[in-house]
Design a protein around this nucleic acid. Structure first.
Lengths: 142, 142
DNA sequence: CTATATGCAAATGCTTTGCAAATCC
DNA sequence: GGATTTGCAAAGCATTTGCATATAG
């Protein structure tokens, strides 16, 4: 995984710095979609001198190459980042804690939608977010 | 329309100020989803002394009452606001200019999705955004 | 050796907040 | 008249940028 991403970066003429390695490794390790700051805090446990701006610069670089996705959660004004290793999928977003999980199921038929949208607008993709409550938050609210 | 919203505000114990009236009226007039700043500029043509902070405060108030929706467009980091007069619908978002239009069609079956999501997560709603290119932007790119 | 990347600090841009004066009811 | 709302100015916060130094290849 790390190798593949490094290879892609090299292919694009980017230099492979230790910071890049740890950023990608940390993204791979996270079991949720982190914000830039969460990523930074995680990385600083082993690399205390990394700059938050370096994280941002590299997340933007990776986003430009299509290696990470930026998702904005409703209400929150921070972006969270996910690696785009998996194929097309959607997100279950908890309205209480804001955490997002993947749902590997897509009920959307773009051909059918294109018909509904008419010829004025050309559909090239879509995002479906499911809102609700995760087990933890339901238990807390009980 | 204006009347209905004013009535709802009154019902909640909110005072009806001239600023509130013009904010709602301006939202009603817009033929796209404005940002807080666009709304402010529009209103200042007739009410030059209104403060941008008043706009924000009232948009947040209206959002809390469910009278407006906040939508974040992908890539952009500003929020746009829409009145929730219409029923459930989705958005056609142009990846070039960022404008959003409504699509009064919903292919999403929440029962079916709930089955796919399993019992851990309780779905209460969803948002579907269709990405693509509007006529204008397709013509410009040609 | 040279272009690219990093860290620092400062800047940016959107949004929120504290406060005194104004105003709705 | 009393609570709410406004406008102003300042603060907040996530993110970006300029620049000198360090570093990958």
């Amino acid at each position: 995984m790390l190798k593949d991403i490094i290879a892609k970066l090299r292919e694009k003429g980017c230099k492979i710095t230790p910071q890049r390695r740890v950023i990608i490794q940390s993204l791979l390790n996270f079991n949720k979609f982190p914000t830039a700051l969460e990523l930074c805090n995680d990385i600083r446990q082993t690399n205390p001198e990394i700059g938050l701006d370096t994280i941002y610069r590299n997340l933007n670089l990776l986003a430009g190459l299509g290696i990470v996705n930026q998702i904005n959660l409703p209400g929150k004004d921070v972006k969270v980042f996910e690696l785009t290793l998996q194929g097309h999928h959607h997100h279950l977003v908890c309205l209480n804690c804001g955490e997002a999980n993947c749902l590997d199921y897509c009920p959307v038929n773009e051909k059918e939608l294109q018909k509904a949208a008419g010829s004025e607008f050309q559909i090239v993709g879509h995002a479906l977010e499911l809102y609700g409550y995760c087990r933890k938050c339901r238990a807390a609210a009980q």
